[in-house]
Every structure is written in structure tokens, then in C-alpha cells.
Computed example of a mutant assay.
Amino acid sequence: MGSKNFKAAAAHIAPVYLDPVASTQKACSVIAESARNGASLVVFSESFLPGFPVWAALYAPIQSHEHFKRFLNASVYVDGPEIERVRKAASDNGIFVSIGFSERNPASVAGLWNSNVLISDTGEILIHHRKLVATFFEKLVWDPGDGAGLVVADTGIGRIGGLICGENTNPLARYSLMAQAEQVHISTYPPIWPTRVPTESDNYDNRAANRIRASAHCFEAKCFGIVVAGRLDESARRSIAQDDPAIAAIMDASPHASSFFLGPTGAPMGDEMVDEGIGYAHIDLDDCIEPKRFHDVVGGYNRFDIFDVTVNRTRRKPVRFQIGQQEYGSRVDAPALEE
């Protein structure tokens, strides 16, 4: 187990939409500022690099090909220069970093995952998670991930896990983290979640839904929650709407998500953040202990003779190449065969 006390930061920050280099630079600035203010962990939103593909909810599939191309070209590889810069910023500032990104698939010119990495204070990637199932309109953008990222990292500041957006609605995914003695749960979300045109009825209240899901997990796991949503700034709004007043109206009517902290009873810690900025909270891991005496669903408050859960953590690849006894992955990394 890690240190009993630390300060966490929630980066309620808008990326520079579809500009991964500028967004990375902005993230590194926030990382440095959070560290200067005494934080040991800073969390960024879902798909911070290169921004969230809200357009997939707003245009018919046959009208969104160009949006997809722009988004694909702005997405990044996990071993690319953008994530490398974030890792260096984490190491240089001695701070843990969680950041969401649209991950390019090295085996496909158009394959993407909705991914997140937890980076240590020495720049090491501790968890590389790909969202298990893309939600609703996200299926037009991102492919399904796998269980390889269902990991809780045992760090010097505690046992940290996390899920992306709608995964926090999946009780088995959440349970798989609870059962690894999770003490701090990170959940990340988009800036808005359009579901209806304004004339029909109110849009899905993502702010309320995010609070319900996060509070439920913290109460059940008896862990702290760091909830970080993206922000949709005017530049992103214009890029997505493209002078279409009907599209702009839907975005304007959609509730903007907030970022916040929760304690291990599910109760809020401090205020919700809606405006751009960095929020902070002090976390005392000892606060996770007393509630476990009431309901420990991965201990004495369960029936393991009745329930049996298995999680497959295999990292899925589309093909494996073998030359002799040496096996290679899906990248073009195998040596050429001799004639």
C-alpha cells in the first residue's frame, strides 16, 4: 500500500481541438503547474488527445467521413512522441499522470481505440487501458478494447485504478478493480453527450449520470473518486458545427459535464468544476478502512461459494508472426525471410 496522504489534481481543461502537439504542450504545462501546487497525481479527461469526437453524435454516418479522417489523423500512438512528452513531463515534475487519448492501431490505417494511460512519477506507463466497449455513437469511431488494462497499480501514493466513461456503468468491470484493493478510482468523461435535438426534449443529463455512477462505485468500493470530464471550447464548437446552426443548437443545448472529487462514502469533496481550471483535493487513504467494516464486497460481505468471476487480461492482436522459435506481434517488426 502507498502513502496515507497525498494531494490530487483534476485538470478540467479543454484540449486544442484536433491539434495533438499543441494539446500535449498544454497538458505538460498543466502537469508542471499541478506539481508546483503540491499535487502527486493529475488526471486529464477522456480523449484529451486530440479532443472528443462529438461529431459522431451529430451527423449521419454518411455525412461524417471527413470528420473521421480529421480525427484519425489527429489521433496518436501509445509509443508516439505525444505520449512520450507527457511521460517526460511526469518524470521531470515527479508526479503521476492519467491521460485519455484516441489511440491509433499500428495494425490498421483506420483503426482506433479509446484509451487511457496511468504514468508513474518516473515516467513509466503503469496501466494502458483500452475501453472495453465503445458507447452508442462512439462505435462509429472506436473499436472494442480488451481486458489487459483492467489493472490496479500499486504505487507510492496508493492503489490506483480507473475506467473510461460508460465503463463505469459496467458492474463487472468495476468489480474487477475493487477486487484488486483499489483505493483511488479515476473515471473520465467527454465534455458533452448529445442524445436528442433540443425541440424534442431535454438531452441526457450527463452531469447527473456521472455523479450517480461515481458515487455508487466509491460507496461500493470504499475508495476515493477522481472524476474528470473534458471541456468543449469555442474553437472545438466551431470546428464541429461548421457553420451549421442546427448542429450548433444541439451542442448548446447539451449539458456540459463537470469534474469533481468523491470520498469513500460516495460523498462529494469540494465543489464541482464547470469552468476551465485545475481542482485539488487532499486524499487520506485511511478513510477507506472504516467503511469496509460495513460492506466489504470483495471480502466478508460476499459469497464466493456462490459467485465466481473470471477476467481475461489477454492483450488481443489481429495476427502473430513466427519465425523459428521467435514470435512477433502485429507490427511490421519481423525480419525479412532470406531467399
Rank of each mutant, 00 (worst) to 15 (best):
L150G: 02
A173F: 05
R159P: 03
V197Q: 11
H185S: 09
S187L: 10
V141Q: 04
F219A: 14
M178H: 05
I212C: 03
G156R: 13
I212S: 02
D143L: 04
E220F: 10
Q180V: 13
G166L: 10
A148L: 03
H217E: 13
R231Q: 11
S235Y: 10
R211M: 15
W142G: 01
R213A: 11
T199C: 01
V228C: 12
G161D: 03
K222T: 15
G158T: 01
D205S: 05
N210D: 14
V184E: 05
R159H: 05
A148E: 08
T169L: 12
S201P: 00
A181W: 07
H185Y: 11
I226L: 14
A214Y: 02
I160Y: 09
G162C: 04
N203H: 02
S176M: 07
V227H: 08
F224H: 00
A179M: 05
Y204P: 04
A216Q: 10
D205K: 06
A173C: 08
R207S: 04
G158K: 00
I164K: 01
G147E: 02
H185C: 03
G145V: 10
I157K: 06
D205W: 03
L163M: 12
T155C: 12
A229F: 06
Q180P: 11
L232D: 00
A214F: 07
A208P: 01
R211V: 14
K222H: 14
W193Y: 14
V228P: 02
G147K: 01
E220N: 11
V227W: 02
Q183S: 03
T188C: 08
R196T: 15
D205V: 08
E182V: 15
P194N: 10
N206I: 12
D143Y: 01
K222A: 15
H185E: 00
A208K: 03
N203W: 00
P144M: 08
E182F: 10
S235A: 13
I160C: 10
G230D: 05
C223R: 03
A214T: 07
P194E: 09
C165S: 12
R211F: 15
G145A: 11
